[in-house]
Structure formats: structure tokens, C-alpha cells
Amino acid sequence: MAHEHKLEIFRGLVKFKSNIQKIWGVLAFLCFITIIEVVLGIYKPEGLIKTSFLGMKLLNWIFIILTLVKAYYIAWDFMHLRDENKSLRRAIVWTPIFLVLYLTFITLVEADYIYNVFKEGFVTWDF
């Protein structure tokens, strides 16, 4: 980071002239994504709610993917991970990703099992 900034985003598709320009460009992109999220959240298109993929509504998958995109640009450009040493970047990024994927897999599968126990057991939970 101390040396120079990499000024390309979107894999070189957009190249900025200075670091300050890049910051504003990334801000515009983040705002754009947030606006899409909010609009989708308010209107909830029928087609995206009715279809589900891997046990979750398509709309929710879109939200999660957009969130990860936002997280990528915050970490890469605001937290300067783009300019850090590759091995530092990988240590920082892949450690949590691996652990979080593991944890969410375990908790969500277990929760779904408990949901089925509540639903199909012969005990009523609503009295």
C-alpha cells in the first residue's frame, strides 16, 4: 500500500486516473448496488419470490450475492486489499470464508432438521 495504488477495477475494464477518482467511482458503484437491493426489497418481484434454489428464494440469493459484491469492493478498494501483498490478502480473505461456510452449513442444516421435528412431531407448539 505504501508504494502505489492499482487503479483498475472490474478486471481492468474501468481504469481511473487517480486514487481519489477511483474512490468516487467505487462509491457510485456501491450506491448503485444498494439502490437495486432496496428497490428489490420493497417491490419483491413475483417471479423471484416464487422460485426457489437450494431451499432459499431466488430473491434472497440475489441479495446475498449483491452483498458479497459490495463486501468485495469495500475490502479491495476502501481497505486497500487490492494493493496488499498477495499472500497477506489470501490469509485475510480465505480464512474467514472457509470457517463461515463451514459454520453456516452446520447451523442451517441442523436448524432445518429441528424445523422438521417441530413440524412433523406429534406435539403441538401452538396452544
Binding site: 463461515v100 447451523t107 442451517l108 432445518d112 424445523y115
Partner: peptide, 18 residues
């Protein structure tokens, strides 16, 4: 980040449960 992930995973757990 792992602490927060733990909280959000716990939230997801309760949410999928109910």
C-alpha cells in the same frame, strides 16, 4: 469478523428453525 459471523449464523439458525 468471525465473531460477527457467529452471531449471524446463530440468527440464521433460529430463523431456519422457525
Amino acid at each position: 469478523a468471525l465473531t460477527f459471523s457467529g452471531f449471524l449464523a446463530a440468527y440464521g439458525f433460529s430463523r431456519f428453525k422457525f
